[in-house]
Design a protein around this nucleic acid. Structure first.
Length: 575
DNA sequence: GCCGTTTTCGGCCCGACTGTTTTCAGTCG
């Protein structure tokens, strides 16, 4: 049982209640309960077990009891009873574009459709088109949605799509009728994966712009095209929405479509308390005329708030902080001075030590840490002791030739199954620093994995912990760890935690960084680069660090070279 | 089902687009 399990059960209950046409506000309460579980800043699972959930916003008496039952017994009678009323395959129908609870309910009750396979058969036989409220077009759309789901994954990596986003932004900027352009939605907020793209433009000719948007070269098919919005499917399968508004509406629309939904709901209810109604086009209400709005920041100011950077608009305390003027001054890419976790041809990297150093210098960095794999990662050509010592020598030699730049000799040492390290202490002591990572035995229990990692962090030579959960976004689940305990252990042992900014990792997850920061744990933004191009992912890392509320002082690799050198020479207890 | 310096009861964000309608329901974001 994990935090995510708790949230998923609440969401499934919401869906089931929706299918039963329950009170929509009750449905929403379950959804908000799931959000509250996900966003809670402590060990919610333990608190649920202890029946200690009082005072958490969004979780009242009923959800408190249900979460307690679920966490302490692993099951929830209410949920199981609801589930038994519908076939399990019904859930996959919600993944189909254009199908919601009402239509699914009709399909189930009249045609006994209980899965995507059933639905396909019913459509092929023409049974769906004749249902009341349905029609030939709906049937065709459903078949298209089924085909689409089978063709494409529904999510994309943030780091994978940003070149495409920039291309489309550039094309929109050149349109003669468009004056302002921005990406919005989860992309602008820096979510690690996105399932659609939102673009916003200011124009006097919205219908024309929408039309033109559907003819961009990246577009594969048009989903909808109206006077103020258009939706298309790009050639890579990504859905992409455009909203066209006036110049005066633009800041409101940008705020609105950037979200998150949770952030906006909270912002709107705050506005209502001040007699202002806020929608994507502007303020209405008695005092609406009092505010001159030219950009997003003006909207927040009108509500008595400091400007909230898009990355932290998740309703996780940013609105309260903005009201109290205590928002963090978030880190910027320009503040990075170096980075630590990088590979070369010595293990599984594509480029040499010298090439990696040159690229780092071109990026304006003062130092670059080399951390090739250790010997147990034989699949990655990990270094055994003699090759590691040779690499240290090669780095010393290269350093002699650099001015105002330094390579650090490190290693990404495997954390073995029992928490010991792949090299003995006397070898590790010859390195400038060391990243410790888990690369095997992923299936330990959460307790075992947490103990394993904490034991590694207790080693004097372990400078930083690599990719905390080993997740590969959209490909491999994280291994189970207790984040709260790992953060506490990092604080105690003065071990830095890495923000691995390889696009498919982005690990540790952004949701944990504020907690780590508040415990005094330092972050190192590391690209885990396996080539010179990999170093360019630092910008992605900074976005995720911002999403985790990190400031310059929270990120170790903002420190200048001399400070990093001095830091490495101190015993961990004095860092 | 949750919540409360307008409420312990009566609210709970809201607009655009589509398709199936004969004035609107469902879905999406």
């Amino acid at each position: 049982m994990t935090r995510e399990n708790l949230a998923e059960v609440l969401e499934e209950i919401a869906l089931l209640l929706e299918l039963k046409a329950e009170n929509p506000f009750k449905v929403r309460a379950y959804r908000q309960g799931a959000e509250a579980v996900r966003n809670h800043d402590g060990d919610i699972l333990q608190r649920a077990k202890d029946n200690d959930l009082a005072g958490i916003k969004g979780i009242g008496d009923a959800l408190r009891d249900k979460l307690h039952e679920l966490a302490s017994t692993g099951r929830l009678g209410f949920h199981e009873k609801l589930r038994a009323e519908f076939p399990a395959g019904l859930f996959e129908l919600f993944d189909l574009q254009g199908l919601g609870p009402k239509k699914i309910k009709v399909l189930y009750e009249t045609l006994a459709v209980g899965s995507i396979a059933d639905l396909k058969t019913a459509c092929d036989e023409g049974k769906v088109a004749v249902l009341p409220g349905f029609g030939a077009k709906t049937q065709t759309k459903i078949l298209e949605a089924i085909a689409l789901k089978q063709t494409f994954a529904d999510s994309f990596l943030l780091g994978g799509i940003s070149p495409l986003v920039e291309e489309i932004l550039d094309l929109l900027r050149t349109h003669p009728e468009i004056s302002r352009v921005s990406a919005a939605g989860s992309y602008r907020r820096g979510k690690e994966t996105v399932h659609d793209l939102d673009f916003l433009v200011a124009t006097r000719e919205p219908a024309l712009v929408c039309e033109d948007f559907t003819t961009l070269p990246q577009v594969a098919s048009v989903i909808v095209c109206g006077d103020t919005k258009a939706s298309v499917r790009l050639k890579n399968g990504l859905q992409c929405d455009l909203r066209a508004v006036s110049n005066a509406q633009f800041p409101f629309a940008l705020q609105y479509f950037t979200g998150s939904k949770e952030h906006n709901v909270a912002i709107r209810s705050l506005a209502l308390k001040q007699g202002l109604s806020l929608n994507e086009y502007g303020f209405t209400g008695e005092t609406a005329g009092d505010h001159e709005i030219h950009e997003e920041a003006d909207i927040y100011r009108a509500l008595g708030l400091d400007f909230i950077p898009p990355e932290i608009r998740e309703n996780r305390g940013e609105i309260e902080a903005a009201a109290e003027h205590t928002l963090p001054r978030l880190i910027n890419l320009e503040q990075l001075r170096g980075t630590f976790h990088n590979h070369t041809t010595a293990s599984d990297g594509r480029d040499t030590l010298a090439a990696m150093a040159d690229e780092a210098m071109d990026l304006g960095l003062q130092y670059l840490g080399i951390a090739d794999h250790s010997k147990s990662s034989f699949q990655a050509n990990g270094l055994e002791e003699t090759r590691l010592l040779e690499q240290i020598e090669a780095i010393r030699t290269l350093n002699a030739g650099y001015e105002n730049f330094r390579l650090f000799a490190g290693n990404e040492v495997d954390i073995l199954k029992d928490g010991t390290l792949d090299f003995p202490d006397e070898i590790l002591a010859r390195l400038d620093y060391c990243v410790a990572s888990v690369h095997a035995s992923f299936t330990l229990t959460e307790e075992e994995m947490t103990r394993r990692i904490c034991r590694a962090m207790e080693n004097e030579h372990v400078t930083m912990l690599g990719h905390v959960t080993g997740r590969l976004l959209l490909r491999r689940e994280p291994y189970l760890v207790n984040h709260a305990m790992i953060i506490d252990c990092a604080a105690e042992t003065r071990t830095i935690i890495e923000l691995n900014c390889s696009p498919q990792r982005l690990d540790m997850d952004w949701r944990w960084w504020k907690r780590a920061r508040d415990k005094g744990v330092l972050c190192a933004i590391n690209p885990d680069a396996h080539s010179t191009m990999g170093l360019h992912h630092l910008g992605l890392g900074v976005r995720l660090a911002r999403k985790g509320w990190l400031r310059k002082q929270d990120v170790f690799n903002t420190r200048p070279l001399a400070e990093v050198e001095a830091f490495f020479k101190l015993p961990k207890s004095r860092r």
